[in-house]
Design a binder for these strands. Structure first.
Lengths: 342, 342
DNA sequence: TTTCTTTTGTTAAACGTTTAACTAAGGCGC
DNA sequence: GCGCCTTAGTTAAACGTTTAACAAAAGAAA
């Protein structure tokens, strides 16, 4: 009933049904006319034998398969997993499978993961680079696989890109805070070595300059929010302390909130807080957090649309898409306390 | 330089280097002796041509490849993505790739996703079933691919399983609350149709029975926490209202917290809250949330270990692993207010 | 009847890789 | 000079699938 290797191939089906493999293939793919009788017999055999086609063989034969590779920096960040969830939905709708790999910390590992992904000969790739250099772009272009770059854009882009307008989003947040009466803001980031983050920072700085506000101080606290506590506490204890904090990533939003609680600052009475990214938990805190909401779904969808166009053969010039963010105003922002001025 | 199809194959390398394909394969895989000179020449050719092997071809030839499929109910739940992240790390360490699919809501979709995964002829599978029935177990066993079932166990298990001791964990939480002086607890769950959740509930009920406490009320609020607000508020406004809430999933923890805030209940003064799962945000709320922490990493690692054993040919009887959870005590739990008694 | 068309099915090559079986050549002991 | 081992490399088959090219049979038009 089943071949010795435990796998049942199209050959087994053909034999059992007393036809040629080509006929089986034809009924499976629905390519050519097959008589009612034979078709039914084959369907039945397939059912009882539990046959399903081998992707590897199809892929080998076809040259490429309905698979796209997705490379993200890490699977620990909810932003990335949200993107993946969204891409997976799109892919499934279009009959594609996705293969996910996380790049890991160092460039060597990233490049090896990319190679692994490419060795599947995917029909396309979606890449969220680890850093601004994106040294692997060359590898990718050389492979002739269509790809789109998401979220973190390298300096020079010869490919389709989809990203968010970080500068505008951050500027909007600063604008809103200024409208509440804040004059001194504090920017907290993991690192300014990512273009993404730099743009967010630049947006705030530019707004403050335009509005005649003092240039906001920026804190680079790294990825371990715990260690940021003393730095942050010190910044808030200064003589002319900031009255509002803008956190530039979701992890920093979380870290900042913890620090504020631990150091006894009350949000928003003592200090206002604007977070980056918008997750469910931000609506469950007391107060709920005012946040810069990235359009995750639309990022994924647009990237997918570009990619499928390319896969379909579109060879027009690369497109750079920038999507706007939205500020979700909630309870963590309020006018600064005026009492302190006197 | 490159074949017309844009892909460079082992054949191209062989031709360019003036050797047979077998020799190229031998230097790539390091299988047989190849003279220094030839080896270097081939390496160089590989480099300049940008060759890397085609997984599909290897897989076809070898029968199976170093890939394992992972099937989760959804990619929106941080518990599942955390598991995936962990499995991915394990896989990478052992030189495996993983292919992830999310099963989606209905059974039909789940089963089609499973088929898609199996069509890759993975060396193994890790499955987190959608429900207790796990109708696809048959499909999986028929395919002869080793697999381990994670987290949500079907009633009858003929496979290796790795899960958490839900009953004990929930009982511990109830025990802790009772120790603080709580006598009336409220259990909130999305649904009791999952064995997992039923076990958690049973653990609490059993503890209360043992301790001579009244049987706790249970609220099934579905997946949309918003709609739960009136129900929850009503339960807390009752005459003999519960003084502690145990939320049975991470989403419910979040939802319950929001409801409490919106209805003006102060945690832990008015009511204590124990959450399920332990995520970073639970430490950023004020107060931080006492939570039943599932050993996510260990779940993933154990599952991976079992799977690799099976892949290596271990054919001993299936093993059922149960891991203990840990109660992380934080600020959201406190002794009940005694004033209300009078 | 002949010829042409349509319908239904088969044969065989190809995709890129690995590997068992083979060949050729060099070295060594006698 | 002969036999034998070792080393370095080649040949060809196989994995499971698709599909162009072909064949056979059955109608249809003449």
């Amino acid at each position: 009933m089943r071949s010795p290797r435990g796998k049942v191939s199209i050959r087994d089906v053909a034999e059992a049904a007393g036809v040629s493999v080509a006929t089986v293939s034809n009924v499976v793919r629905g390519r050519k006319n097959v008589s009612q009788a034979v078709r039914e017999r084959i369907q039945e055999t397939i059912e009882t034998l539990g046959y399903f086609p081998d992707r590897a063989a199809i892929q080998l034969r076809e040259g490429s398969n309905r698979v796209v590779g997705v490379l993200v920096p890490s699977l620990d960040n909810p932003f990335f997993t949200a993107i993946i969830a969204c891409l997976e939905t799109c892919a499934r709708n279009d009959g594609y499978d996705i293969i996910v790999a996380s790049a890991g910390e160092d460039a060597a590992s990233a490049s090896s993961r990319l190679r692994a992904l490419l060795s599947w000969r995917p029909a396309g790739m979606v890449v969220l680079p680890n850093d601004d250099h994106f040294a692997d772009a060359a590898l990718l272009s050389a492979s002739a696989v269509p790809y789109v770059v998401l979220d973190r854009l390298p300096q020079s882009c010869t490919a389709d890109t989809v990203a968010v307008d970080n500068e505008q989003a951050a500027s909007d947040a600063a604008d809103y805070l200024a409208g509440l009466g804040h004059r001194k803001m504090l920017v907290v980031a993991t690192t300014l070595s990512l273009a993404n983050i730099r743009q967010r920072h630049a947006g705030i700085v530019a707004f403050c300059a335009r509005a005649g506000l003092p240039e906001p101080k920026v804190l680079e606290v790294g990825h371990h929010a715990e260690e940021a506590l003393p730095t942050l506490a010190a910044a808030l204890a200064e003589n002319d302390a900031p009255t509002a904090i803008i956190a530039l990533t979701n992890s920093i939003t979380l870290g900042a909130l913890r620090c504020l609680h631990q150091s006894g600052h009350v949000v928003p009475d003592d200090v206002s807080l604007v977070g980056y990214d918008d997750y469910a938990w931000m609506r469950a805190t007391l107060p709920p957090i005012t946040a810069i909401r990235q359009p995750v779904e639309e990022l994924g969808e647009q990237a997918w649309r570009r990619l499928t166009h390319r896969i379909a053969g579109d060879s027009t010039a690369p497109v750079q898409v920038r999507l706007p963010c939205m500020l979700a105003v909630r309870g963590s922002t309020a006018p600064p306390r005026t009492g302190k001025l006197s």
